[in-house]
Each structure stands twice: as structure tokens, then as C-alpha cells.
């Protein structure tokens, strides 16, 4: 085996590290526009999915412009404030005190002319963050559609929250038990009672993810409570 001097080892390490750093930052810069575009398209697809519009990567931007007719930002008293809804970082907002947060609202106009209200969700699953979008009928109480996504829930278990059967359970559920009392949607292990408009089934084998969705709905929607009450039709 060849003998290498200490000077050689140090020089070798320094050059290697600098080269690798250059290569990686170059690649990151080069690929960033593509990655940002993917994230934007995905967000638009999710918002569309929450008002039950299926889109592909190719037509998402176009469909978004067609169906999402308005978007604005409110505070937790339900008053409109300055801001661009699409640019709001929900994760960063959740780190602020409740009265300082800005809450994005998207308005989707369906083919039959009905205006639905879409709000973003973000919470914790078992292994990492879960998020989604949920849309309401004009009464601001009945769920029109919901879509969920996750970072690293277990495939086949917690990751099932992205499947159609799970999302469809939320349709027609109501989040207010009377005109002013917010009760959210509760997850039941072993299945919700038939006809329960405030309850859905948990996923067997992934109680923590299911409970995470429940907590996410509770926490995120509660912030909009005043907005929902003042704007219902």
C-alpha cells in the first residue's frame, strides 16, 4: 500500500469537498426552476382535486385558472387582510400566534355555478407532516370535497389517506353541530355510526395517522370559524 503524507491527505480532502460543494450547488441551481414548477403544479392539482376536478400535470395550470375564480387572505376574526393566498406558507403561519396568522381562502366556481370555498390544511401524521385542502358548499358547513397528502406515512397503512375511498368519506359531512357551534369531523376506530354527519372511519392499522387527520381538521378549520359563520349563505 502506498504511503501518503499528511499534507497530501489534507489537500486531497479540501479539494474533494470544494469540488463536491460546487457540483451540488450548481445542480441545485440548475434544477430549482423545474422543482418549483412541480410544487406549484401539484398545489394547483390539489386545490382542484378538493373541488372534485381531476387534472393532469399538463392541464392543471389551465384548469386552475378556469375554476378558481378568486382567492384572498383572512385573519382569524374572518376579516380580509393584505396578502396573496397562493403564496402563503401554511407551515410558517402555524408557527405564529393565532391572532397574527394569515389564512388563505380560495374560491372555486363549479360548472353549475355553485361557489365553493377551499381552505388549506396542515398537521402531523405518524412519521411526518400531512396536509391537504378541503372545500365547503356555500353554507360553509357541508364538506364538498377533501384531498390529503403526506410526506412519509407508511405505504398501505397511513398513506391510505391519499386514496379515493378515504377522501370520499368526508363528502357531505358537516363541521358545525348547530349554527354557531364548531365540532369538526371526528374519526372513529371500528367505523362511524351510519348516518353520522360529523364522523368518519379510521384506517385500520394506522390509528395515529387517522387521529392526525382529525386533529388537523380540528386545528385548521377552527381558525376559520368566524369566517365561516359570517360568510355562510
Amino acid at each position: 500500500m502506498k504511503n501518503f503524507s499528511n499534507r497530501y491527505i489534507y489537500t486531497f480532502s479540501v479539494i474533494m469537498v470544494v469540488l463536491v460543494a460546487l457540483l451540488l450547488s450548481f445542480a441545485a441551481q440548475l434544477l430549482k426552476p423545474f422543482q418549483d414548477k412541480n410544487i406549484e403544479v401539484e398545489k394547483k392539482q390539489n386545490i382542484l382535486a378538493s373541488i372534485r376536478i381531476t387534472s393532469t400535470v399538463a392541464d392543471a395550470v389551465q384548469l386552475y385558472d378556469k375554476y378558481i375564480v378568486d382567492s384572498y387572505v383572512v385573519n382569524n376574526k374572518g376579516e380580509k387582510v393584505e396578502g396573496v393566498a397562493f403564496k402563503v406558507d401554511v407551515k410558517a403561519e402555524q408557527g405564529k400566534p393565532a391572532d397574527k396568522r394569515v389564512l388563505p381562502v380560495f374560491v372555486g366556481k363549479l360548472d353549475n355555478g355553485t361557489l365553493t370555498t377551499v381552505v388549506p390544511l396542515r398537521g402531523k401524521g405518524l412519521w411526518g407532516p400531512i396536509w391537504g385542502y378541503i372545500s365547503f358548499e356555500p353554507d360553509m358547513n357541508t364538506i364538498y370535497g377533501a384531498v390529503f397528502d403526506h410526506q412519509g406515512e407508511t405505504p398501505g397503512l397511513g398513506a391510505e389517506i391519499t386514496t379515493d375511498w378515504y377522501k370520499e368519506m368526508y363528502r357531505e359531512k358537516k363541521i358545525f353541530s348547530d349554527s354557531v357551534t364548531f365540532c369538526s369531523v371526528t374519526t372513529y376506530k371500528g367505523g362511524a355510526k351510519k348516518g353520522d354527519v360529523h364522523g368518519v372511519d379510521a384506517i385500520s392499522g394506522s390509528t395515529i395517522t387517522s387521529k392526525g387527520v382529525e386533529a388537523m381538521l380540528q386545528d385548521c378549520l377552527e381558525q376559520y370559524k368566524q369566517f365561516f359563520i359570517t360568510n355562510k349563505k
Partner: peptide, 16 residues
């Protein structure tokens, strides 16, 4: 590690 980060970045950019 360099290879893995490159693969990860490429996957993110092209097969999101």
C-alpha cells in the same frame, strides 16, 4: 452522498 443527492434532485425535478 453526492450521487444520492444528485439522484434525489433529479427525481424531484423530473419524476416528482
Amino acid at each position: 452522498a453526492t450521487m444520492v443527492i444528485l439522484v434525489d434532485q433529479l427525481l424531484r425535478a423530473f419524476v416528482y
